[in-house]
Simulated scan of single mutants.
Amino acid sequence: MKNILIINSGSSSLKFQLIQMPSEEVMASGMVERIGLDDSKLHYRVKDNAISEIIEATDHAVALKAITEHLMDSENGVIKNKDEIAAVGHRVVHGGDAFSETITINDKVKEKIKEFFSLAPLHNPPNLKGIEVAEKLFPNSEQVAVFDTAFHRTIPRKAAQYAIPNKFFEKDHIQLYGFHGTSHKYVSKKAIEELQNENSRIISIHLGNGCSITAVKDGKSLDHSLGFAPVNGLIMGTRSGDIDQSVIFYLIDELGYTSQEVSDLLHKNSGMLGLTGYSDLREIEREAASGNKRCQMALDMNAYRIKKYIGAYVAVMNGLDALIFTAGIGENSDVIRNLVCKDMDYFGIKLDEEKNKVRDKKLRAIEAEGSKVKILVIPTNEELEIAQQTFELIS
Results as ranks from 00 to 15, higher is better:
Glu115Lys: 07
Leu122His: 06
Glu170Tyr: 02
Val144Phe: 11
Leu122Ala: 11
Leu119His: 00
His152Phe: 12
Gln161Asp: 15
Glu115Tyr: 06
Glu170Ser: 08
Tyr177His: 14
His180Trp: 07
Ser183Ile: 11
Glu132Lys: 02
Asn140Gln: 15
Phe147Lys: 05
Ala150Cys: 04
Gln175Thr: 11
Lys158Gly: 03
Glu135Trp: 00
Lys158His: 12
Ile155Phe: 04
Ile155Trp: 05
Asn127Tyr: 09
Phe151Val: 11
Val187Met: 08
Phe179Ser: 04
Phe179Asn: 02
Ile174His: 09
Tyr162Arg: 00
Phe169Gln: 04
Lys185Gln: 15
Val187His: 08
Lys136Gln: 14
Tyr177Glu: 08
Asp172His: 15
Pro125Lys: 05
Leu128Lys: 11
Lys190Ala: 12
Ile155Leu: 02
Ser188Ile: 12
Phe168Pro: 05
Thr182Gly: 08
Gln143Leu: 08
Ala120Trp: 15
Phe151Asn: 07
Ala150Phe: 03
Lys114His: 12
Glu135Thr: 00
His180Ser: 01
Gln175Asn: 03
Leu122Gln: 12
Pro139Ile: 09
Phe168Met: 07
Tyr177Trp: 13
Ile155Ala: 02
Glu142Val: 15
Leu176Pro: 09
Pro139Tyr: 05
His180Glu: 01
Pro125Gly: 06
Tyr162His: 03
Ala120Phe: 15
Ile131His: 13
Pro165Asp: 04
Val133Ile: 14
Phe169Thr: 04
Ala160Arg: 15
Pro126Phe: 12
Lys158Asn: 13
Glu115Asp: 14
Ala145Thr: 11
Val133Lys: 13
Pro156Leu: 10
Ile131Ser: 09
Lys129Trp: 03
Val133Cys: 06
Ser118Val: 14
Glu132Tyr: 01
Ala134Val: 12
Gln161Tyr: 12
Gln175Val: 04
Ser118Trp: 07
Val144Gln: 02
Pro165Lys: 03
Ser118Phe: 11
Tyr177Phe: 15
Lys189Pro: 00
Val133Pro: 09
Asn140Val: 05
His180Tyr: 08
Pro126Asn: 11
Ala120His: 14
Gly181Thr: 01
His152Met: 06
Val144Gly: 03
Ala163Asp: 11
Glu142Trp: 02
Tyr177Ala: 11
Pro121Arg: 10
Pro121Tyr: 14
Phe168Asn: 06
Val146Tyr: 12
Phe168Tyr: 15
Phe147Ala: 13
Ser141Gly: 11
Gly181Pro: 01
Lys158Leu: 10
Val133Tyr: 05
Ile131Phe: 14
Tyr186Asn: 04
Lys114Tyr: 12
His152Ala: 08
Phe151Met: 08
Leu119Ile: 00
Tyr162Asn: 01
Ala159Asp: 03
His184Trp: 12
Thr154Trp: 05
Ser188Leu: 10
Gly178Gln: 06
Phe138Lys: 06
Leu128Arg: 08
Val133Gln: 11
Pro125Gln: 10
Tyr186Trp: 02
Lys129Tyr: 08
Phe147Gly: 05
Arg153Ala: 05
Leu119Arg: 00
Pro156Lys: 06
Pro139Arg: 10
